[in-house]
Computed example of a mutant assay.
Amino acid sequence: MRMKGLKEVIIISLLLVWGCSAGMAQEYDINPPGVVIHNAPAITHEYVGSPSIVIMPDGTYIASHDYFGNKLSDTYVYISKDRGNTWERIAELKQLTWATLFNRREELYLIGIRPRETIGYGDFVVRKSLDYGRTWTNPKDEKSGLIRCGFYHCAPVPVVRHKGKYWRAMENMGQAWGWGPFSALMTSISCKADLLDAAQWVFSNEIKYDSFWKEGATAWLEGNAVVTPKGEVKDILRVAYNPDDLAAMVSVSADGRTMTFDPQTDFIRLPGASKKFTIRYDKKSRKYWTLSNFVLQKDRSGADNGGIRNTQVLMYSNDLKEWCIKDTLLTCGHPELYGFQYVDWQFDREDIIFVSRTAWRDKTGNPPRQHDANYLTFHRIHDFRALKKK
């Protein structure tokens, strides 16, 4: 940037100070917002995917991600013992992608997909660690974490505890490649069961998305297991829909075996819902919370709003049907290049912590596009309940 005088220097300095305090990231900064956990240089075309994070009982943070692009979809695990200020890579898991970190007390799990081919859709697997993520079980058979063979799809989505069971949503693609005709399903297992034993898992029926349900909406995916205020389990899915405000709420029976969906009544409005989101319930505020890639008015162009990922907002709901924006957390210019996406997060007392698949300039240049993230970054929202509603 070329300076013309002292007055311009002062103005730019003030803008930088204001921008950082307001959540505005400066796209000409060489470092992205937050704490960098990992940088895959943009020039390598090895893109960071599937961020996930969990807090262990002693306060240790564990984070993970996989790769796409020029690198195979293995999963990498990181640990932080100082509340996210510094991170160490501690493990690499071959043939695992789109995985959720989840803990049952001291037991740590990754629940994801083992690609049937080099990359792509594949088997539903669970892997377990008893040393905070340094070593992991291998899903060799149905007793060691190979839960079901097929062409499944998922993302780092919530594992919810409800009425003595763990619940987690996923999708079935039915073939090794392609995008669009995902079938939604719910999986569940007793909280006391061996999570590596396939026989202990319950699978619901599958509901394949029908493009005739909603004009312009072409697919659903990356569903969230959520418990409603009435104690019912729902699968709330991202919907590929250009206005970028539509999600689907699929009902799940109490035994976890039956899912139902009425396209006349079960679509809900959720800003930014054409991109992946995570919903969690907070007992203290008695609200549901999510972080979303809402598209600011200045960035709406009538093009594919599902591809605009340069803003993250914090939202809440009392009933899962009406959502309000609480605050804008991150935003920057050049939505064609930069993005904070696929955010996974956890409550940490009065704060929210989250990890982001971040596309940002690095020392080798810009990423090819906002989708092709070259960073895994860590962020904290201080005292999130006290933030003023926008």
Results as ranks from 00 to 15, higher is better:
F384C: 07
T377R: 03
L196N: 15
F102V: 09
I308R: 08
I279V: 14
C149A: 07
S13W: 07
S13D: 14
A199H: 15
Q297P: 03
I90M: 12
I90H: 09
K214V: 08
R357G: 11
W289Q: 03
S285L: 03
T258R: 14
R357V: 08
P57W: 09
N39D: 00
D282P: 02
Y28H: 13
Q95K: 09
Y342G: 02
A42H: 01
L93N: 10
R369Q: 09
Y47I: 00
W87Q: 04
V313R: 02
L196S: 13
H153N: 15
G59V: 05
D141F: 03
T377S: 13
Q95Y: 01
A373D: 14
W87C: 05
A359V: 09
G272A: 02
G306W: 10
V160T: 15
T137Q: 14
P115L: 08
E27P: 07
R357E: 14
Q26Y: 11
K363L: 09
T137E: 13
C332D: 08
A386S: 15
K275Y: 02
V36R: 06
H371K: 04
R369E: 13
N293V: 03
R116Q: 07
G150R: 10
W289P: 06
G223A: 14
V48H: 12
S253M: 03
Q200M: 09
P335M: 07
D74W: 12
K283T: 05
G223S: 13
F261A: 12
A198T: 07
K298F: 00
T265W: 01
I189C: 05
Q370P: 01
W167M: 09
S50G: 06
N374Y: 12
L93K: 12
A169D: 13
M56I: 02
Y316M: 05
A63T: 10
D255G: 04
D299W: 11
D131G: 10
G19A: 15
G174I: 06
V295D: 02
D304L: 01
G174L: 05
E27S: 14
S211F: 03
M24Y: 11
P139V: 04
P51I: 07
T44V: 00
K283P: 06
F261K: 11
L246Q: 11
R280F: 11
T358Y: 02
K7T: 13
G339F: 01
F354P: 02
S317T: 04
A198S: 15
L330D: 05
M173C: 09
I62P: 04
K71S: 12
F182T: 04
R369K: 10
